[in-house]
Design a protein around this nucleic acid. Structure first.
Lengths: 192, 192
DNA sequence: ACAGCCATGTAACTCGTTACATGATTAC
DNA sequence: GTAATCATGTAACGAGTTACATGGCTGT
């Protein structure tokens, strides 16, 4: 029967955010994604959030309800029973693809023979700042997750800690790279 | 002036592969990508290699030449002078985007409250095998890179070693995750 | 003879982005 | 009042994939 996928991975990711049980506007869902998904799974653009929500609603996996808020109405979304079933099925049965990585800095290093070494070091430094910032952001998110081992955020904490590991490793790999680059510059630098 | 990009990042990545100086068919270029780019920058599909080559040639960054090989002709490609300039400029002046990551396993963990813990552990194990395999593949590539510190492969070796760091860290992060999941299963497992 | 690799593409589609457009509400 | 944030979309495009189609060459 293998009916074709009801949603894309990003669609399921958003459905997953709704599976925590809150009723959210598209805007809020985007904020949620930016403080969770973002660290391990490229958060979708605002416009995609809306279009995915439409698709999910079309497939009956999400319920949207127009709600009066003062003068205007906003649309809040929640996962449907069918959505929960579909999500569970997807999580249990679909293949887990290997991580997709596009490491732009690594590409720059790889093509280092076409770049000034000083420029390369700058770019490594830039990446380092970004990585530190991300680590700080993630640490804040992690602190915001209460430590009740029985609640529904237990897995979120695991992923957050995994992410802290991940970005710390990234940071030290970056540092090793930088010292190696620096060493090469001394050894093989401009012939004086 | 900021003339619009002459190529996409993937286009430049392929151009970069040609910057090592070999004359390659599209097919060979794809193989090269699969043994280098692949470890840090999603290697393009065969069909995309051909279409990017066309675009690069259209922009004058690559020269293609039909070459007789026995009965038939194949098309070999090399980087042009203009291509070298464009690549150097791109490497030096374009912004280095942060790494793009879609970690499908992390998403599965994050949504762990919707999955059987046993299933989750299986998926972690699957990821672990993939990671080990990738590490093995990369180690072989690394061995194939001669250790002359002055040659054009010096940076390739740096990236390879960076990659070994990266995948080893991924592996241990995975193991920490697995033991934590196992611990949770014991503590909070099925109420007997 | 047959399998598997070398070699080159086309067509259709999906996923996702940026830029644009609009307007209400809230904080200062 | 005015800037930031909340809120919702549309349109055009770009990047990348899978599936399909073709055929020569190489080793057994």
């Amino acid at each position: 029967m293998a009916r074709s996928q009801q949603a894309t991975p990003t669609g399921y990711a958003l459905l997953g955010l709704l599976s925590f049980g809150r009723r959210l506007t598209g805007y809020e869902l985007k904020q949620f994604a930016d403080s969770s998904l973002r660290f391990f799974y490229n958060a979708p653009a605002m416009s995609q959030v809306y279009s995915e929500l439409e698709k999910l609603e079309g497939a009956g996996l999400v319920k949207g309800r127009d709600t009066a808020v003062g003068e205007r109405t906003i649309r809040v979304h929640s996962i449907s029973r069918k959505g929960i079933t579909a999500l569970r099925r997807w999580l249990a049965h679909s293949a887990v693809d290997p991580p997709l990585l596009k490491h732009h800095l690594a590409l720059r290093i790889f093509l280092g023979h076409m770049t000034e070494p000083e420029r390369l070091l700058e770019q490594v430094a830039g990446q380092r700042s970004w990585c530190e910032q991300t680590l700080t952001d993630l640490a804040i998110v992690r602190e915001g997750l209460e430590d009740d081992p029985a609640d529904q955020w237990a897995h979120a904490r695991m992923v957050a800690d995994w992410g802290l590991d991940y970005y710390r490793a990234e940071l030290s790999a970056l540092d090793r790279l930088a010292s190696r680059l620096a060493a090469t510059m001394e050894t093989c630098g401009r012939p004086q």
